[in-house]
Amino acid sequence: MTLEINSVQRDAGGFVTVTGQLRNTGSRAFNDTVAWRGVELQGTGESVAGATLVDKAGKKRYYVLRDTESRCLCTTGVSSVDPGQVVAFFAQFPAPPPATTELEFSMPTFATATVKISG
């Protein structure tokens, strides 16, 4: 599995939205998506709610936002990724201070990546 970040956009409402793609480059279906939902939302179904943003300069970690029913503001329903399949994903986070332009994006089972905020 590979994860590609397409954009990290600061929204007018005080949010940061990360969009990208999950791609199965293997020859078999990938079914180990449980880790992607993180620890806090284990009982709420498949999602990418385990993603986080870290502002190293500000020493703060941001978690995926949730609605009033504890559902993540992120891609849900990804239980399997077939060989060659590409799955678009998004995750929405609280925005860091306006001066923060660089964050670290992490999602369970993938390497951490440094990303720049646009907008």
Rank of each mutant, 00 (worst) to 15 (best):
E4V: 14
I5L: 05
I5H: 05
I5R: 09
V8M: 12
V8Y: 08
Q9I: 06
R10A: 09
D11R: 13
D11M: 13
G13W: 12
G14H: 07
F15A: 11
F15L: 13
V18F: 10
G20S: 10
Q21M: 09
Q21R: 12
L22Q: 03
R23T: 05
N24D: 00
N24I: 01
T25K: 08
T25W: 01
G26A: 08
R28G: 02
A29I: 00
F30A: 09
F30Q: 06
N31Q: 05
N31K: 08
N31A: 05
N31C: 05
D32F: 03
D32S: 06
T33H: 00
T33Y: 00
T33C: 04
T33I: 00
V34W: 14
V34K: 11
V34L: 11
A35P: 04
W36A: 01
W36F: 12
V39H: 03
V39C: 01
L41N: 08
Q42N: 06
Q42P: 00
G43T: 07
E46Q: 02
S47P: 03
S47V: 04
A49D: 02
G50Y: 00
G50W: 05
V54M: 14
V54P: 01
D55H: 06
K56Y: 10
K56N: 11
A57N: 03
G58L: 12
K59S: 08
R61D: 13
R61H: 08
Y63N: 11
V64D: 01
L65N: 04
L65G: 15
D67P: 04
D67M: 07
E69M: 06
S70F: 14
S70Y: 11
C72F: 00
C74T: 10
T75H: 11
T76Y: 01
G77N: 06
G77C: 03
V78T: 13
S79G: 14
S79W: 01
S80D: 02
S80Q: 10
G84S: 07
Q85T: 00
Q85Y: 00
Q85A: 14
V87N: 01
A88Q: 15
F89M: 13
F90Q: 15
F90C: 11
A91W: 02
Q92N: 12
Q92K: 11
F93W: 10
F93G: 14
P94Y: 07
P96S: 10
P97Y: 10
P97G: 10
A99Q: 14
T101Y: 02
T101V: 11
T101G: 15
F105S: 08
F105G: 04
S106L: 03
M107V: 10
P108D: 07
T109A: 07
F110M: 14
F110C: 08
F110Q: 06
A111L: 12
T112P: 06
T112C: 09
A113S: 08
V115M: 04
K116D: 10
I117G: 11
S118F: 08
S118I: 13
